[in-house]
Amino acid sequence: MRQFPLPMLFALLLPIGSAWAVEDVSKVNGSIKAEAGQGYGDLETVNGSIRVGAGATTHSIETVNGGIDIEEGARTGSVSTVNGKITLGPRVTTDGNVETVNGSIFADRGSQIDGGVETVNGGIGLVETRVRNSIKTVNGDITVGIGSQVEGGIHIEKPNFSISLSAPRKPRVIIGPKASVSGELKFEREVVLYVHRTATIGPVHGAQPIAFDTDTAPAD
């Protein structure tokens, strides 16, 4: 039987495009671009956006003031920002949570999030995406779009409103065609909950589901 030198053997076992070691990229001011098809460690910046090219692999991704854009077929660890939106392209896999405070989160077809999805002030949208844990927000709308699966339920927390003369806006929660939400749907504030007739959901607490059978939910 042919024998390979040990370094060559390890190289044969690594996925195509992998390197012996991956380097972290860290900045204070400035954006970060992970090139398509390349491998990286942690990507971190304070004031700047982060873009991960198609098919790239990274460890965790984190910024404070900036958006995060992960392109088709990339694989990452946890993804988080404070002030910025997060966009996952088609067939993206994250091995941790996807979180933002002030910004939206969107995951496109074929993506898988092996953690939870969480915002405070920002909408959450999924299209044919699987979330292994829960979805949480305070003030954001939620759309579990066509064919999506959420395995840990949905939780909208009670906001800490300051004194206001106007009534707070009710978040819209839409469970779309052939989507499923396992676990509890728990609402600690008033929401408008639309559930497509082909969707399946767990027990609901704090809201009355409104059934619909059109491609999109009714406008409020």
Rank of each mutant, 00 (worst) to 15 (best):
Pro90Gly: 05
Thr119Phe: 05
Leu165Lys: 11
Gly147Met: 04
Ile32Trp: 04
Val52Thr: 06
Thr143His: 13
Gly115Cys: 14
Leu43Asn: 01
Asn29Ala: 12
Lys136Ala: 14
Glu99Pro: 03
Leu126Val: 08
Pro5Arg: 14
Glu184Pro: 05
Val79Ile: 11
Ser78Trp: 06
Glu184His: 15
Val64Gln: 09
Ser104Ile: 00
Gly153Phe: 04
Gly183Asp: 10
Phe4Arg: 14
Glu35Pro: 06
Thr58Ile: 04
Ile174Ser: 00
Arg109Val: 15
Ser26Leu: 10
Asp69Trp: 00
Val98Arg: 04
Ser18Ala: 10
Ile156Arg: 03
Gly67Ser: 07
Ile163Lys: 12
Gly110Leu: 11
Gly67Asp: 07
Gly183Thr: 15
Ser26Gln: 08
Ile70Lys: 02
Val204Pro: 03
Pro203Ser: 00
Met1Cys: 07
Gly145Ala: 12
Leu43Glu: 01
Ile86Pro: 04
Ala74Val: 10
Thr81Trp: 04
Ile86Glu: 02
Ser134Gly: 08
Thr94Asp: 07
Ser164Met: 15
Asn160Gln: 15
Glu118His: 03
Leu13Lys: 14
Phe161His: 14
Ile156Lys: 05
Ile113Pro: 01
Ser162Lys: 11
Phe212Arg: 06
Val46Pro: 03
Glu62Ala: 14
Gly153Ser: 10
Val150Ser: 02
Val127Phe: 11
